[in-house]
């Protein structure tokens, strides 16, 4: 379906074929019924259709885990790599081909545990990509082990008497890294917000980190239950430079105008545990983007050989 659409696009540049959201789905997701990953996939498909992304010029990179199966279900190029290492691969893709649209999907174990080292440095590189942390607070694919974001006291197979340590907060961690340029949080039970957040993330020129709070129907079905049942426990951060969805005004009474350029407020809001906050915590479009600062002019093969021959003079006997 899509390959036909694309070849038409190439042949008839005057009348481009419009791709619908479903054209971006390669095959049905094989997640459990009720998995938050479906919501993320839907939002991504809608975003791709909205932006009319060319499937052959879009790359989805992932690690290992339930959420890392994501690329298999998207009509784009996909790289389903190894546990915790999606970000280095995505960085390599972006450095090699800055013109490609790059998306990264990671789970909480993938990103904040085994891949934590890469996470910190990828934030600092600030390569232009959309990075989705599909955070269900648990290791799902390996069947119910505590992850760094599992709430303290929450029981799992590896912490049968409850997680002993306070959960790691990916927002605070990300906001603490030099050159962090876009940090947002959204949730699988507010799909309109998730879509709007992804839209903002895509528009941001840099490393757009979006934490998606989501439920694992098998192991953490109730982890956000209070917030799902009572919208008053959630505060939306709204701003013209962030995310502001008028349709949500009815449902969410707690709204705070927060300028995402203000890093101090962003950090302080991320640190507060009085309410759950959704929205863009921080966004600065002016920070250096790695593949841009590293860009060098292309050199022809003949010129390279000429330069290399000159280089040999330095070593000539």
């Amino acid at each position: 379906m899509s390959s036909i659409a694309i070849s038409l696009l190439d042949l008839e540049a005057d009348s481009p074929v419009c791709l619908e959201a479903d054209d971006y789905q390669k095959r049905p997701g094989k997640w459990c019924a009720g998995c938050g990953d479906f919501g993320a996939l839907n939002a991504v498909k809608r975003l791709m259709a909205k932006e009319q992304l060319q499937p052959e010029k879009t790359v989805f990179v992932s690690g290992i885990g339930c959420s890392s199966r994501f690329p298999h279900y998207v009509n784009a190029y996909g790289f389903h790599g190894i546990h915790g290492r999606a970000l280095p691969v995505a960085t390599g893709v972006k450095l090699a081909r800055p013109e490609l649209d790059v998306f990264v999907t990671m789970g909480d174990g993938d990103c904040t545990s085994i891949g934590a080292g890469h996470w910190i440095h990828a934030i600092r590189y600030n390569a232009n990509m959309v990075v989705l942390l599909l955070d269900n607070n648990i290791y799902g694919l390996t069947k119910n082990q505590t992850s760094p974001t599992t709430p303290q006291g929450y029981a799992s197979m590896t912490s049968p008497r409850g997680a002993v340590l306070p959960a790691l907060d990916p927002l605070q961690a990300t906001l603490g890294v030099s050159n962090a340029s876009f940090v947002a949080q959204t949730a699988d039970w507010v799909p309109v917000h998730m879509y709007a957040t992804m839209q903002a993330a895509y528009e941001h020129p840099g490393f757009s980190f979006v934490r998606i709070l989501q439920r694992c129907p098998k192991f953490t079905p109730d982890v956000f239950q209070k917030n799902v049942e009572n919208p008053d426990l959630t505060e939306l951060l709204v701003h013209e430079n962030g995310v502001d969805v008028p349709a949500l005004e009815q449902l969410f009474k707690a709204r705070r105008v927060h300028d995402p350029l203000n890093i101090d407020d962003a950090r302080s809001l991320a640190r507060r545990s009085d309410m759950l906050r959704l929205g863009v915590f921080f966004r600065d479009d002016s920070l250096p983007v790695y593949e841009k600062v590293r860009a060098v002019p292309k050199v022809s093969a003949e010129e390279k050989v000429a330069r290399l021959n000159k280089e040999f003079e330095r070593y000539a006997v």
Partner: peptide, 27 residues
């Protein structure tokens, strides 16, 4: 000056990952 780059990665694993990602993308 040959249109290329050296990427000093955060660790040995990432260095392999960046090289593989770049090669996957055609470099």
């Amino acid at each position: 000056s040959y249109g290329g780059m050296v990427h000093q990665a955060e660790d040995e694993i990432a260095a392999a990952g960046v090289a593989i990602g770049a090669s996957y993308a055609g470099k």
